[in-house]
Simulated assay, not measured.
Amino acid sequence: MGELGLLRRALQHAREQEAARQRAQEQARQQAWAAQHLFEAAVGEVTPLKSGAKRHWSAPPAPEPRPVQREKDERQVLQESLSDEFDVSTLLDVDDQMSFRRPGIGLDVTRKLRAGYWSLQGQLDLHGLRQGEAREALAMFIRLSHRAGLRCVRVVHGKGLGSPGKTPVLKGRVQAWLAQKREVLAFVQARAAEGGAGALVVLLQPNRKKY
């Protein structure tokens, strides 16, 4: 009789454990369902749209990339605005072609520049531009040429044959503007085959920065 009682108690304990296990499983299922349907439970009952047409959603178009370097260059050009009142005559070497060399640059540099020692790597033609347009174009051209690592460029300003009185006004302006640019080491009048009195050959500072 004692063994029978023990067996009954063991069976009862097993049934209780099974019932507890089933309750735990049911509670876990309810929690999982609640987690999966949390949004529905929060929103409540919804009414579907009457139209049967499908709605397609797409991300908004990406913004256009900003030309950061170009904007930086333009700001720098504005900051380094060139004066029209700058007197370059005191800085020019008084020779038959009125060359310019920055202080500390020897005469041999302008001689080499005039002789074509450095190959021309770029050119800016200012024909047809107004004075303000020519100033801005020259400032940008010198800055970008220096940034690209160019050493020798040509600036064509014309001989002024179309100006009132046939006076080469732009030539003097270009000389003054170039003398104000820190990137410019020297300039000379171009050789006859390269534009003669209507152009200048410009030597730029070496650019040791890497972009």
Rank of each mutant, 00 (worst) to 15 (best):
M1W: 09
M1I: 08
G2C: 04
G2E: 10
E3N: 07
L4W: 11
G5C: 08
L6T: 05
L7T: 07
L7M: 12
L7V: 07
A10Y: 10
H13L: 08
E16G: 13
Q17D: 12
Q17W: 10
Q17P: 02
E18K: 15
E18T: 13
R21T: 10
Q22I: 13
R23M: 10
R23T: 11
A24N: 11
E26Y: 08
A28E: 15
A34M: 13
Q36A: 15
H37Y: 14
H37I: 10
F39L: 14
A42Q: 15
V43C: 01
V46E: 13
T47N: 09
T47M: 13
K50M: 05
S51R: 06
G52K: 03
K54I: 02
H56L: 03
P61W: 04
P61L: 05
P61Q: 05
P63E: 01
R70F: 07
K72R: 05
K72L: 06
D73V: 02
E74Y: 00
R75K: 10
R75A: 08
Q76I: 00
Q76K: 08
V77I: 11
E80N: 12
E80G: 02
E85V: 06
E85M: 08
E85D: 13
F86W: 13
D87S: 15
S89K: 15
L92T: 06
L92M: 10
L92H: 07
L92W: 12
D95T: 15
D96L: 14
Q97K: 15
Q97R: 15
F100A: 05
P103N: 11
I105P: 09
L107F: 13
D108P: 04
V109R: 12
R111T: 12
R111H: 14
K112Y: 10
R114E: 08
R114T: 11
G116R: 06
Y117L: 06
W118P: 05
S119C: 06
L120R: 05
L120A: 03
L124W: 02
L126Q: 02
L126E: 00
L126H: 03
G128H: 10
R130H: 11
Q131E: 12
E133I: 06
E133N: 09
A134L: 08
E136D: 07
E136V: 05
E136M: 07
A137R: 03
A139C: 12
L144V: 04
L144E: 02
S145M: 02
G149R: 02
G149K: 03
R151G: 04
R154D: 03
R154E: 03
V155A: 02
V155D: 00
V155S: 02
V156E: 09
V156L: 14
G160T: 07
G162A: 09
V169C: 09
A176T: 03
W177P: 04
W177Q: 01
W177M: 04
L178M: 12
Q180E: 05
K181F: 02
R182L: 09
A186G: 09
F187L: 03
F187M: 01
Q189A: 06
Q189K: 10
R191H: 09
A192C: 11
A193P: 04
E194T: 07
A197M: 10
A197E: 15
A199M: 13
L200I: 04
L200Q: 05
L200H: 05
L200Y: 06
V201M: 06
V202K: 06
V202D: 02
P206Q: 05
P206I: 03
